[in-house]
């Protein structure tokens, strides 16, 4: 694999906590402004790939009436929405029995995409599917959009319509580094480090399995936008070692740092690992009640709040293309599930 040290992943896609917060805030703010200006936020991706905000309200009085105007999602609600669809993404990949790598790549794409956009602007379900489609393409596990769409009863044209904007939002930085391979590497190293005898290999195997499950959890958090994959892997391994007690982990950390003549010292590294752990601990899946509430808000932000509105959109989409009318249907069906 190309070198992580010279990668775009390292150079451009690992942020500080503050940078991350600013990005989420900026896209949230932009969507709120669109809402104020146009009364709705969902951007339409046309067949030609161009983007547009919805039509402004015909009657200016509509917007003047503050009570009828849809309420935007706040940053926390946006996060819940992403969490929901990140879990869905894992589910879809599992159902298709895709290799782990595809799931990891798709997740990273999804997270990076929503650093640039608000869920109010691009429907996370469509983006999730496009991220899976793109990950399959990039990881040489090509699945046609049609096949993917069929498997989950979704219109595959929505996947294709969003493909270019996904690549663009990822700035074409499509090679990403998930921690799974780092885990394999560290385990090989540990085998030498503690001079494992043959009858102890099962211990390392157990360590490996638990660590992989731990990485699955880490991948769902924002830690992957804050820490390099090697540290994520170490955090998972430390956690797993806490369960299985295979090696003296602190000694191991000191050992790798001494070998790498790294700029880090042990306490810095441990601080990072603690931070990663706390991301996993703080991870929260939205309650059903929350989801219902957010979905309702989101629906109105998308301009699908009242019957009136959705009819208007449907009418408009009719003379545009059949894709858009399908889009409307899918959007509607989402909230029912």
């Amino acid at each position: 694999m190309a070198d992580f040290l010279t990668s775009t992943h390292r150079a451009k896609w690992i942020f500080s906590t503050q940078e991350l917060a600013e990005k989420y805030k900026a896209s949230n703010q932009r969507a709120i402004q669109a809402l104020e200006k146009y009364g709705a936020t969902l951007m339409e991706v046309d067949a030609d790939g161009s983007l547009s905000y919805p039509e402004p309200p015909m009657n200016p009085k509509d917007t003047a009436d503050k009570h009828s105007r849809p309420k935007p999602l706040n940053i926390e609600e946006e996060r819940y929405m992403r969490v929901f669809y990140e879990n869905k993404l894992q589910e879809v990949c599992n159902n298709f029995h895709f290799p782990h790598k595809i799931q990891a790549t798709a997740l990273i794409y999804f997270k990076r995409f929503y650093l640039q956009w608000s869920v109010m602007e691009h429907h996370p379900k469509n983006i999730m599917l496009t991220c899976i489609y793109a990950a399959c393409k990039i990881e040489e596990n090509h699945v046609s959009a049609e096949e993917l769409g069929k498997g989950i009863s979704q219109d595959h044209q929505l996947i294709l319509n969003n493909e270019m904007i996904v690549y663009q939002s990822l700035e074409f930085d499509l090679i990403v580094y998930a921690p799974y391979r780092s885990i394999d590497g560290f385990l090989n190293d540990m085998e030498e480090f503690c001079r494992v005898k043959d009858d102890q290999l099962h211990l390392l195997k157990a360590l490996h399995e638990t660590a992989r499950m731990e990485v699955d959890k880490i991948m769902l958090t924002d830690a992957q936008l804050l820490f390099p994959p090697g540290q994520l892997a170490l955090a998972a391994l430390r956690c797993s070692n806490g369960v299985h007690q295979v090696i003296d982990f602190d000694r191991y950390l000191r050992n790798i740092l001494s070998r790498q003549s790294s700029a880090h010292n042990v306490s810095e590294l441990i601080e990072s690992l603690n931070a990663i752990d706390s991301w996993v601990k703080r991870y929260k899946f939205p309650s059903e009640k929350d989801l219902k509430h957010i979905n309702r808000k989101l629906k109105s932000c998308w301009g699908l709040g009242s019957n009136d509105e959705s009819k208007k959109r449907e009418k408009k989409s009719k003379h545009k293309s059949k894709k858009s009318s399908n889009e409307t249907q899918n959007v509607l069906s989402l909230t029912e599930t």
């Binding site: 669109a34 161009s50 983007l51 547009s52 904007i165 700035e171």
Partner: peptide, 30 residues
């Protein structure tokens, strides 16, 4: 490398050609 992220390079337009301002550039500064 290192060039600050520039997303949203796509054409952003409003579909109201009659309304005068044709372009809505979201959050240019940010």
């Amino acid at each position: 490398r290192g060039v600050p992220a520039q997303a949203h390079q796509q054409q952003l337009r409003r579909k109201d050609p009659g309304m005068g301002t044709n372009i809505y550039p979201p959050q240019q500064k940010s």
